[in-house]
Each structure stands twice: as C-alpha cells, then as structure tokens.
Design a protein around this nucleic acid. Structure first.
Length: 499
RNA sequence: GUCCCCAUCGUCCAGCGGCCCAGGACUCCACCCUUUCAAGGUGGCUACGCGGGUUCGAAUCCCGUUGGGGGCACCA
C-alpha cells in the first residue's frame, strides 16, 4: 500500500529590508494548501545577495509571520531534516552541481565584464533585438578570452540554453502556460554565491519541495528552472504562480508607492492579524459561497487552486479597514482592552506597566469606543480626554471656537450646577440631571444643541464617545472642574458680533 | 524595444453556454435610528473594453484589436 508522498511547500523570503506583504500573501496560500493536504511548510531564507542583505530583516520576517499565525514546520530558527535553511550556509551544497553542469556541457564559464554586458544590452535594444547574452565566451578558455575586450578576471558560470528549451509547463492556477525563451542565465556569481535560479532548483529538490508556489513575476524564469531540473535528472515540482498584489495605479505593489507593502506597517497601525489574513485571502481568491468573513481554517479546508484568480488585485485599504473594524467589534471587551493597551502606552497616555486605575479606566471606556475605530491607532485621540492629567487637558481650538462661545456660557454654568448637586454618580444619573437643567424643563434647549458645548468642555473635542457615559467615567470632580473652566473661558471669549 | 501573462461595477470577488437586460462585499449617496462620531437598518448609483466569429443561445468558447501588468541583472 503506497501512501501518496506528503506535499511540501515553502516560502523563500530574501532578508533585504522590511518584510514585504507579498511574503505574507505567498505564505498564506502555501500554508493553506499544505495544511489541507497534511503536508509541511518550510521557511527558507534566500540570502544570496550580500549587497542588499540586512541583518535584522530575517528576525522581522519571523516576527511578522508569527504575528499573522503563519507558522512553519522547518526553518533556520527551528531546524529540520534538511538543515541548514539559510542559503548562505549552503554554499558547499551547490558546488558539485555546478561542476556537474560544467562537465556535462550544460554550463560554461564567462569572463565578460559587467561594462561589456551593459553595452551589449544597450546595442541590442537600440537595434530592436531581444536582449540576451551573446555567448562571446562559449568555447573559449581563459587565455583565449583574455585577448578579447571586456575581460574580467573573475568568471561567472552560465547555463548553455539549448535551441529548443522547454517553454511550456502546466500551472496549477493558469493551466498550460508558455514562457519566454531564457537567456544564458548566470548560475554562479563571481563571488562564488549561486544566483537565485541555481539555488532554488537545488534547494527545492534537496528539500523535497513538491509544489512551488510563488508570484507571477517568476513565470518568465520558469523555463530556466525546468532546464535545470531536467539536466540534473530531477523530477519537476508542480508550479502555481500567484497573481501580483498591486498599487492603486495597478503597478506591482511597492514600498515606495504603498505603505501597505511593508508588513510592519499593519501592526503599527493597529490592524488585527486575523483581519489582515482574512483580507489577503480575499485578494485573488474566494472561498466557496458568498462569505467574505472567514478564518484561515475555513480557507484551508476548502482550498482549491482553481479558485485562485489570474488577475492582480489592487490592495484596497478601504476594505481592509472595514474588515478590521468588523474583527475589532467581535472581540470581547477584555480582549479589545488587551489589544488596545499597547497603543495607549505608545502614545504616552498610559504607563508601562499600566496602573490598576488606568486599567479600570480602560475597561470602562472600551464599550464606548469599540464600534468607533477602524484601526487601533485611532484610539489614543478618541480617549485621551480620560487619561490626561487635568493640568495638561486642553480643548481642541477648533472645537472651542465653535462650542465655547459667550452664548454657551450659561449652558455650561447650568450643567456645572446640575452636576454639583448630584448625589448619585452614573451615566444615567448624569444624563437625567443635565437634561433637567438644559432641556425643556430647564433652559429649553434641544439635546443636540445643549450637548455640544459640554462635549467640547469635557472631552475637548467636537467628536467624542457618548457624553453622559464619558462624564461618568471621568468622575464628578474632573467633570465639574472642566465644566467650570470652560464656562469661564466662554464668558471671557468675545461676544458674538452683533453689528 | 522585446518576450510572456492578463481583461466583469471606482475597488475586491461570484459567474465556468441558457437560471444573468449579471449577484455579493467595500467605497460613495439618500433615508431611518440618534447627544457628536461610529455601529446598525433600509434603499440607490455604477461593470461583462472593442470588433469579428462559433452556437438555437455567449460575461462564459475561438480569433483579432485595444488596454493593463510582469520579465528581459553577477536582485530575488
């Protein structure tokens, strides 16, 4: 009885800077399929470009993928049967294959200087020819080549692409795909590091990768990989080329044009990992049925390559914001408070560690704000009035100009008096007392009109959480103090121009 | 320039020859609720790029065209 071999998938980020959303996007689809099939998911670090290498980048990738819950089975940090999982530590692994390719006549050394190569490409473009290496070095040894111009002392190794390379392959998402004829791609750089093309093929084979899931940008280099698999006598893995995430202008998503290209941005802004994951699952993909809100488990269990789109989706922050708001509202109040706390601490409103008093205040304000934010970073502005000291409390100038006018002074005074006379302190009691003083039985105002100056006085802004509840949380002393201060200020302000 | 990929509302998706004069979601607009702002509810605007075929019948298949994207590095 032969068990089908378990599927093995991988994501292969390059540690060249802030982790990219694309890495999370690819990981999501790789993992969804791997889990559905009961296979493994490998994290391999492709750090063969030492010019762009950034030492802290690798850890950031780990942090962000873990934050999203996209955990891997094998990787540089956790090891595994095919270690090492960092390409820079596998240099010796690639060597014999380069030698074999050279010996079999599938590869050759090239001493062309980069200056010559640049020149060559320019000429080709000018003459409207397809660009590609002109094979000057084919059949030459070092001595012979050194006689010719554009010579460089340290050679690279290039693949010798035959006249009829395999250009067709089956893609899990696109079906039969044809790709362009490859160039004599460099396999081994002058510094002894393999290029991506050599390293992926060798590592994917050695690590038993059965499905290569990567971005559409790789379609055009797949023939190179096919050739390498064939030359080395290895079975070809299955390929799935995912659509590319786009900027609003439809170009490939980039850190320059889109803050959302950086994974760390989402955490900073206060997006929930579950919301981001759900959103990524909505891009270029849909779960059967009409549901849009779904978990990783749901996506994984029903996963189907045929449901992946071929069109590159625009990364639309509006929808993500809505989704995030949805997930935020679904959190229990204690959970919401827990997620919110770091944002209040970062903005200096709450100490680290938070005091019991601060935590109580936070717990009290959660039900007032949970439906009022799309991302957690909006929270500090909304609740700062509760956490700042009375000394540093300030009314927003625009709100003051609009609401703390001379005409509103009597309203503020009346409210202050009403609050002062209260015996029981609760939102309902505050509302009853204030309403009695200001509405029909009192000054005869409409509630909307009456609350405007109070809101500015107590919350310091024209927009705030519900007023009586806010006052209840603030406490009687602080409320009273703010009402009186605002009344003084309103009286002192210039009377309306009655010209 | 050259090669390859792609094409349904502004955006994300559904649709895989008749159920579609195209459905859902986000955005936007209006109304309701309402102490502000949200949330919630109701309703509305908006799309099969174009031209040829194939077929009794096409958003769905084919060809062309236009448009968009990606590759063309000793970067991944």
């Amino acid at each position: 009885m032969s068990e089908p071999p378990p599927v093995r998938l991988r994501v292969a980020p390059s540690p060249t800077g802030d982790p990219h959303v694309g890495t999370a996007y690819m990981s999501l689809f790789n993992l969804a399929f791997a889990r559905q099939q009961g296979g493994q998911f490998v994290l391999r670090v492709e750090d063969t470009d030492r010019a762009r290498f950034r030492p802290d980048s690798e850890q950031q990738v780990y942090d962000m993928l873990r934050w999203l819950g996209l955990d891997w089975d094998e990787g540089p940090d956790k090891g595994g049967p095919y270690a090492p999982y960092r390409q820079s530590e596998r240099l010796e692994t690639y060597r014999p294959y380069v030698d074999q390719l050279l010996a079999d006549g599938h590869a050759y050394r090239c001493w062309c200087s980069s200056a010559r190569l640049v020149q060559m490409r320019e000429d080709q473009q000018k003459r409207k020819l397809p660009t590609g290496y002109d094979r000057l070095c084919v059949g030459l040894d070092r001595e012979a080549r050194a006689e010719l111009p554009g010579f460089s002392e340290t050679p690279v190794v290039r693949m010798l692409v035959p006249d009829d390379p395999p250009l067709q392959f089956v893609d899990l998402i696109r079906g039969e795909v044809s790709a362009p004829r490859p160039d004599d791609q460099v396999l081994l750089k002058a510094d002894g590091f393999p290029t991506y093309h050599l390293a992926v093929v060798v590592d994917d084979h050695l690590m038993g990768i059965t499905h290569v899931v990567r971005g559409e940008e790789w379609i055009s280099s797949t023939p190179k990989h096919l050739l390498l698999f064939d030359w080395l006598g290895w079975p070809r893995p299955a390929f799935a080329h995912m659509p590319l995430l786009r900027n609003v202008d439809k170009s490939k998503i980039s850190k320059r044009k889109n803050p959302a290209a950086r994974l760390t941005w989402f955490a900073e802004q206060g997006y929930l990992p579950e919301a981001l994951l759900n959103f990524l699952g909505l891009l270029g993909y849909s779960v059967p049925g009409e549901e849009e809100i779904f978990s990783f488990e749901r996506m994984s269990e029903s996963f189907d390559w045929a449901r992946v789109n071929t069109v590159g989706p625009v990364f639309d922050l509006d929808k993500l914001g809505w989704l995030n708001g949805h997930y935020l509202r679904e959190l229990s109040e204690p959970d919401f408070a827990e997620r919110a706390l770091p944002f209040l601490q970062r903005s200096g409103l709450v100490g680290d560690p938070a005091s019991t008093q601060e935590l109580e205040l936070l717990a009290g304000v959660v039900p007032l704000v949970q439906t009022r934010v799309a991302v957690l970073s909006e929270l500090p502005d909304l609740v700062s009035f509760l956490f700042v000291s009375e000394e540093s409390f300030e009314v927003d100038p625009a709100a003051a100009a609009k609401a703390l006018t001379a005409a509103s002074a009597p309203v503020l005074r009346a409210a202050a008096d009403a609050v002062e006379g209260m015996t029981e302190w609760s939102a309902a009691a505050v509302q009853a007392a204030v309403d009695a003083a200001l509405l029909e039985d009192g000054l005869g105002l409409k509630r909307g009109k009456a609350y405007l100056p109070l809101r500015a006085a107590v919350c310091g802004a024209a927009i705030s959480p519900p007023l009586p509840e806010s006052m209840a949380l603030l406490g009687r002393e602080r409320t009273l103090r703010r009402l009186r201060a605002a009344a003084d200020r309103a009286e002192a302000s210039a009377p309306p121009d009655v010209g």
